[in-house]
């Protein structure tokens, strides 16, 4: 790790200001990606802006038919929240399946979504549930937010404050883990909210999370595993590595989608 200046603002405004004015500044949420990267000397920010002392970023609350989760809520707090478990159990289960206990007690939903790792779990839920990302400047719909590998719609000095999830009538997340890292080799989140049916895929796309529109169309006719029979997805545009070729990932997307529909 190289030397850096550590800042710990007490407000979102202060954090945004630091981001805007300090040289080569990075936000530190849970640090589960940033800190290992810095230790390996692959990232060398001059300023670290730690969000951990901004208390109102950690709340989880219900507002009507929506669950609002603060950006600094840890995976463990989402997984164990009665509000989330009662109203969007698939989201609680997803959070409880991220990494290991140590990661879940440090990592945050805001950090995960802002980082947009192509193998992260949360982007699949945010996109499938049609969530809204709130920042210090604006609201961004999930469909507008994820812009490619490690890329989002966030501007330089923009800070995620909370994420609002509408409650689905049915939802499930099925993850096929990379045998080594246990990240999602393929993760499929299926959600039904009224007539809106979404199937999102993480871990597989070379541009990060995406919606599988053919599966959504098939399930719109009837939300059943049977509707997916014979449906497959092209391997082109999918990731390939030593653990899974694009073809294997394409196959797993179909398998995990069917399993998610069955579980939803």
């Amino acid at each position: 790790m190289y030397a850096f200046t550590y800042l710990r603002p007490g407000s979102v405004r202060g954090a945004s200001k630091a981001l805007a004015t300090k040289e080569n500044a990075k936000l530190l949420a849970g640090g589960q990606t940033l800190l290992p990267t810095m230790k390996q000397r692959l990232a060398s920010p001059d300023h670290i802006v730690d969000l951990s002392q901004i208390d109102d970023l950690k709340n989880i609350e219900q507002k009507g038919r929506r669950i609002v989760i603060g950006a600094m809520a840890t995976h463990a707090s989402v997984a164990s929240s009665a509000l989330v478990r009662d109203n969007i159990p698939a989201l609680a289960a997803l959070a409880g399946g991220i990494g290991d206990p140590a990661v879940r007690h440090r990592g945050t939903i805001g950090g995960s979504v802002a980082n947009n790792d192509p193998a992260a779990d949360y982007p699949a839920a945010v996109l499938a549930l049609g969530a809204t990302i709130h920042t210090n400047k604006r609201k961004i719909a999930a469909d507008e937010f994820f812009a490619g590998l490690f890329t989002t719609a966030l501007e330089e000095d923009e800070v995620i404050t909370k994420i609002t999830f509408p409650m689905p009538s049915r939802a499930a997340y099925q993850k096929f883990r990379n045998p080594a890292s246990r990240y999602a080799l393929v993760g499929v989140f299926v959600a039904k909210r009224g007539r809106d049916i979404r199937v999102t895929v993480t871990g597989a796309g070379s541009n990060g999370v995406f919606r599988w529109s053919a599966a959504e169309a098939a399930l719109s006719k009837r939300f059943s595993v049977k509707s997916l029979e014979g449906l497959s997805i092209s391997a082109s545009g999918l990731n390939g590595d030593i653990h899974a070729s694009p073809e294997y990932r394409a196959h797993l997307i179909a398998v995990m989608t069917a399993r998610a529909v069955a579980a939803a």
């Binding site: 080594a180 890292s181 030593i242 653990h243």
Partner: peptide, 23 residues
């Protein structure tokens, strides 16, 4: 079932951490 060191054709060890080497 899980372990195997993999070098690519240029000799880079692709399994140089637990992210890729499966204990």
């Amino acid at each position: 079932l899980t372990e195997g060191a993999v070098y690519d054709a240029s000799g880079q060890l692709l399994t140089a951490s637990y992210m890729d080497y499966c204990m």
